[in-house]
Design a protein around this nucleic acid. Structure first.
Lengths: 232, 232
DNA sequence: GGCCGCCTGTTACATTCTCTCACAATTCGT
DNA sequence: ACGAATTGTGAGAGAATGTAACAGGCGGCC
């Protein structure tokens, strides 16, 4: 969920006249990405697991990747869903401290972690991009923390739907696609799958949302009301 | 909670032979900090509030600063406690999106945000430091997310005590100081003050902790058991 | 094609936990 | 020492969970 848009042009201080000239070949993130290998993932397949050596940084191309941590008793706490354009695997050191798993058929692009970070050592521009990206991820994680910290299940689910809508649903208006299982949503929000299901039903009977065909597509009928329920 | 140790020397890639030579004066963060003004805060006094223009970045010198967000209905969700050495105010743009409030008598050092970030544009080393710092904060926020996402009150309180112990309690063994009110802990963990109080009592009767004088000092009698209760 | 098992999602009911509201006990500041 | 603020404790209400049963979709298999 880093929101690392490699094509974004506004620098950290837009008023600055400094422009970093890209070295001739393979230097910008876009170029590096273009040469990076693509890996296709089936649903529930792992990109990496806790404890794996951190060899690569990945950019999501298609699908949704769940970033999660496994607790001692086997429960799974999803920290974040990564969507196309997001970078995953940044910030860790020698080993991954979280696991990453596809919630549906997905594609990721692999980039050497050491090469990226070595290059950032000499390029303030790239380093700042990394900084900005992690800042965005931090903001998203904080937002999720606020959501999960809220008591009621309705608030959490409503917040989740709104966040999904804000992120993915600019185009087709008020329809969002849940590209993950109920169990994934439950593990993200700290609820059970039954509670998620019940809450969606509740929102449906309140005429705030409509759920279609197998529960993968949700239409937000009353965004204002949903925002009210989410306390936002 | 950025854990931005300005004196840390290991670079992002320790094996790299590149060393950034600091410009003659006022360039390193330590030097800038030395000249920065110190502001003293009483308990419950604000460092900044949501919506304030982001003029400064602050480093906590003494005390504890609660970083929080206010919800529509007036509830307060604490995102983080910042301890001495931590930087706060990074990552935002024009305005602060969170509030920062002292939980006890504290001191912070003020640093111009624009100056710091302008300097980072030309110094990959500083930019990388910022990057690493935010990564640390991200890890801490994720850790808190795992804690809050856990269902039971015992797990949350136990996790909180352990986190506090890991952070502050290297020196005096197993004693941690709660430099904040019960209400602050409750708003961090998504519980009520009554539940926090009851849970501490429960842990006390289980002989896992000891609480002394007004509940500000806690001794962890059985760290292993506490970790078990916290599911860590 | 039809049968079967597997997985996911939904719903109902009993249980358990936290929250709300009440008030007592303690600490702290003046 | 007094009053205000904070903390601790109890009883009842409410909400989420756990358990269980059931419906629907999907693929394998005969």
């Amino acid at each position: 969920m880093l929101g690392f848009q490699t094509s974004e042009t506004h620098s950290f201080r837009p008023q600055s006249s400094r422009i970093s000239i890209s070295p001739p070949t393979g230097s910008t993130l876009d170029e590096r990405m273009a040469y990076a290998s693509v890996r296709k993932l089936e649903s529930k397949e792992h990109v990496f697991c806790e404890g794996d050596p951190r060899l690569h940084v990945f950019r999501v191309e298609e699908g949704v990747i769940a970033i999660y941590k496994t607790l001692c008793d086997g429960r799974r706490r999803i920290i974040d869903f990564a969507y196309p354009g997001d970078l995953i695997g940044l910030g860790a050191l020698e080993e991954h401290i979280l696991s990453a798993q596809a919630t549906c058929t997905s594609k990721v692009r692999c980039l050497s972690a050491s090469a990226l970070e070595a290059f950032a050592e000499t390029d303030a521009n790239l380093a700042l991009k990394l900084y900005k990206s992690v800042c965005q991820e931090l903001a998203a994680t904080r937002s999720l923390l606020v959501t999960v910290g809220q008591r009621s299940a309705v608030e959490r689910v409503a917040s989740f739907l709104l966040a999904l809508h804000r992120r993915s649903g600019d185009a087709d208006g008020s329809t969002v696609t849940l590209a993950m299982r109920r169990s994934d949503i439950a593990d993200l929000l700290g609820l059970t799958i039954e509670t998620v299901s019940r809450t969606l039903t509740k929102l449906r009977t309140m005429n705030v949302i409509e759920v279609e065909q197998g529960g993968t597509t949700v239409t937000l009928c009353d965004v204002a009301r949903l925002a009210d329920l989410a306390n936002e």
